[in-house]
Nucleic acid binder design. Structure first.
Length: 427
DNA sequence: TCTGGGGTCCTAGGACCC
DNA sequence: TCTGGGGTCCTAGGACCC
């Protein structure tokens, strides 16, 4: 059996941890740039605040009911996420039995737990995580990952009846669970497939689970659809994954805090994003062979279909894979020159590093003079200083000094658990 | 009008996730 | 006026090879 442990309204729960006065009160957390709502407490949901709704649209409800609003505080959420995951690993006994799936979710392999003890075991996990970290979680347990996700949904749907734990073990429980779940609420069915399925008269998860695999192969994304059907039938087709798999692509993209019209500022932003990406690259000891850049112009027309405006992108293949920030910046800012059009106004830019290879493999490159290896020490030193001092103490000039194109984060809480200066005071 | 068979590699794009 | 960011996997189709 597999469990999925999912933190309840994770970002909101993190904020509440340091604001006990907000317990049982409506809370929402905004995305970067204070754009839209990415987390909402049950109380906020009950007041009619939708998920992923733009902030400015929900603002009237928020103000009317005095809902507490926060900008995203990733330092805080990242740290609390780590604590939750470490707790799960401790409880599992074996680190390989925990697969961190996202910042607020982890799968756990419970194959060693006897079936009649699953409920108690899951409850024990839940109480322990809450005691140790202060973060409330819901747990779904089932024979497959997809069914575990489904069980978790049911647990969250009625937290009081389920005590946030749902176990699907018997065939009968499985059938009931599938029958009461809409097809578009399944893990693996997004907007496009949902429309397709409903048009064909398949509305419940139960109906989908009874479709033939060949049909899924031709209509639901090939092998992906086949796996989904199997999982719904209780036959595992998506397995626990190894942790710490190196990323195959590294991206940093941001909206600007205001429209940007100068090529210099776009280059500053792109250099800043490259620096961040290069840091991630070095952390996993990789080097990138391909650098891509994209910029998004502010929409010209008023059509709602073009809310993002056209994305213009370009990429370049480096002469040899690199993890050196200045090399990557040079390539990326060159691409900006290709893409930028004078007179246009831009709202977003992003960079992507791909064609990643292990950094070790390029050590012996004949075309790199030995002196270049000094750059590696430089990068290492910069990373160490920035890690110790935080907030980009050392950066490349190309990243700019003012950065007034930076995103808005006007309502961010303090980084209580990762900054001495922002430690919570107790009177 | 007719035009092999089998393979690999790469890229673009679609779909999904949180 | 104001709508996030960072990923993954898969398929189709083109280029190329023998």
């Amino acid at each position: 059996m597999t469990a999925i442990v999912d933190c309840n309204s994770f970002y909101c729960s993190c904020e509440r941890l340091f604001r006990p006065d907000l317990r049982n009160k409506p809370v929402v957390v905004l995305s970067n740039n204070d754009g839209c709502i990415v987390s909402r407490s049950d109380e906020a949901r009950a007041l009619g605040v939708g998920m992923a709704v733009p902030y400015f649209e929900a603002r009237h409800i928020i103000e009317k009911h005095g809902i507490a609003v926060f900008s995203s505080n990733y330092h805080l959420y990242g740290d609390l996420s780590y604590r939750v995951m470490e707790t799960l690993r401790t409880l599992a006994g074996d680190r390989s039995k925990v697969e961190v799936y996202s910042v607020d979710e982890a799968f756990m392999d419970l194959s060693d737990v006897p079936e009649d003890q699953l409920v108690d075991h899951a409850r024990h996990i839940k109480t322990t995580v809450e005691q140790w970290t202060g973060i409330p979680v819901s747990i779904g347990v089932a024979p497959t990952k997809t069914l575990a996700k489904l069980a978790n949904r049911l647990a969250k749907k009625d937290k009081i009846a389920s005590s946030c734990v749902t176990v699907i073990a018997t065939a009968e429980e499985q059938r009931l669970a599938l029958q009461q779940t809409r097809v578009d609420d399944l893990w693996g069915i997004g907007g496009a497939y949902a429309v397709k399925l409903i048009n064909q008269g398949i509305t419940s998860a139960w109906e989908l689970s009874n479709m033939p695999e060949e049909w899924a192969h031709s209509h639901l994304g090939g092998v992906v659809g086949v796996r989904l059907i199997r999982e719904l039938k209780g036959l595992p087709a998506i397995f626990m994954e190894e942790e710490l798999v190196d990323k195959k692509m590294i991206a940093t993209t941001r909206m600007f805090g205001r429209p940007v019209t100068s090529v210099t500022e776009i280059k500053e932003a792109v250099a800043t994003y490259i620096s961040r990406s290069a840091e991630k690259l070095r952390r996993q000891q990789s080097a990138a062979g391909v650098v891509s850049v994209f910029i998004v112009a502010k929409e010209q027309s008023h059509s709602t279909y073009f809310r993002h405006g056209p994305t213009i992108s370009s990429y370049t293949t480096l002469p040899h894979p690199s993890c050196l920030t200045h090399e990557l910046i040079k390539a990326a800012t060159g691409l900006v020159d290709q893409l930028f059009e004078e007179g246009k106004s831009y709202k977003k830019a992003g960079v992507m590093l791909s064609g990643l290879v292990p950094d070790g493999s390029i050590q012996g490159n004949l075309f790199v003079p030995p002196a270049e290896n000094q750059h590696r020490f430089l990068m290492h030193t910069i990373d160490n200083i920035n890690f110790a001092m935080r907030d980009d103490s050392v950066k490349f000039g190309a990243s700019g000094m003012n950065k007034d194109w930076k995103m808005r984060q006007e309502l961010r809480s303090r980084r209580h658990s990762t900054r001495w200066e922002e430690l919570k005071g107790v009177k």
